[in-house]
Simulated assay, not measured.
Amino acid sequence: MRKLDPSRALILFSGGQDSSISLAWALDRFAHVETVGFVYGQRHSIELGARLTVRKAMADAFPRWAGKLGEDMLVDARGLKDLGETAMTHETEIVMGEDGLPTTFVPGRNLVFLSLAGGLAYRRNLGRLVAGMCETDYSGYPDCREPALNAQLEALRLGMDADFGLETPLMHIDKAESWRLAESLGGEKLVALINEHSHTCYRGERGARHNWGYGCGECPACVLRAKGWAAYSAGTESARP
């Protein structure tokens, strides 16, 4: 089995809240960190710009991390949109579907992303994949669950005969706890940076500024982010003397 460097990591980085916190988590732990994002015909393509903004802001604000932050790559995965209509990739209503899943679910998306990231990591000797998926407080996507991701990791290890590792630092914590994790990594400065520059809204709206960030305030991603921010803020206030 090919030995990949466990001190070098590749982050699946969308520019959203979860992947931004995961990026900070990785920069705090690994000697070298690269990022990869995916164009898949997403309605909220504004997140692609947020990726670069968050990367730059994080490097500028935290010099100890700047030297660890390596290359970024954007990979074309628009074949996912061609497979069929979803509310994430087409102008259709965001509702709960008859199958019990939100219409924003893109079948196979995270599994495809992990495969593409694994191929890149193999070529660049990056022994750890880091992703922001979470099964505690999420929108109901089955490919965010730990068993699905672990199964895909094992397939990558076998298929490439390489010793990948997968880190999902947010898997078992909710959105409020993820903000507390960000605070533990970089204080209020990091929390404010991610709040301001990351993008989560499925509709790609960046006009309205809320206390939890930018977004429509109505899609599942905005609702989760607002709820998590409210719980985090309430806990922060109660902890102050």
Rank of each mutant, 00 (worst) to 15 (best):
L4M: 13
V106W: 03
W65E: 02
Q152S: 13
T200K: 00
G132Q: 06
F164K: 03
R2N: 14
L4A: 12
R206K: 13
R43I: 12
L101V: 06
I46C: 14
K81G: 03
L114G: 03
G97P: 06
S20W: 06
T136E: 14
G204N: 06
G15K: 03
E177Q: 15
L101E: 07
P63V: 05
E177A: 15
Y138D: 15
E135R: 13
S7D: 13
L101N: 03
G84L: 00
I94P: 09
A77T: 02
G15P: 09
Q17W: 10
R29E: 01
C216G: 12
F38L: 08
R78Y: 05
S198A: 13
Y141F: 15
S45P: 00
E188L: 11
T136G: 00
L181I: 05
M96P: 00
R203D: 01
A31I: 05
D163S: 10
D5A: 14
A182I: 08
Y214M: 12
R64D: 15
L116W: 12
S22L: 03
D161L: 09
R180A: 15
I173R: 12
E167R: 08
R206W: 08
E177C: 04
L181S: 09
C216I: 10
I46M: 07
F113Q: 09
F62I: 04
M160I: 00
L23F: 08
A182F: 05
K227D: 11
L74E: 14
P241I: 01
G16C: 08
A121C: 11
S198M: 05
I173N: 06
A131I: 12
G213S: 11
L23I: 02
G127T: 10
T92P: 00
M88Q: 11
H44I: 10
L156P: 07
G127V: 07
K68N: 03
A239N: 04
E218P: 00
I173D: 05
H199K: 07
S139W: 11
L170M: 06
L83V: 07
A31Y: 03
C134S: 15
H199D: 04
I94M: 13
R8S: 14
R206T: 15
E135D: 15
T92H: 02
C134A: 15
W179A: 05
V95Q: 11
S115D: 05
G100K: 02
R43L: 09
C222P: 07
F164Q: 08
W212R: 05
R145K: 14
F113G: 10
I46Y: 00
M88F: 14
L101K: 14
E85R: 12
H172K: 15
S139H: 07
T89Q: 02
R240L: 13
V39S: 15
L83Q: 12
Y232K: 04
P102I: 10
R123V: 08
D143V: 10
A31H: 13
A239C: 01
D163A: 05
L224W: 07
H32P: 01
G159S: 05
H197P: 01
R157Q: 14
A231Y: 00
P107N: 10
E188Y: 01
P6A: 10
F62P: 01
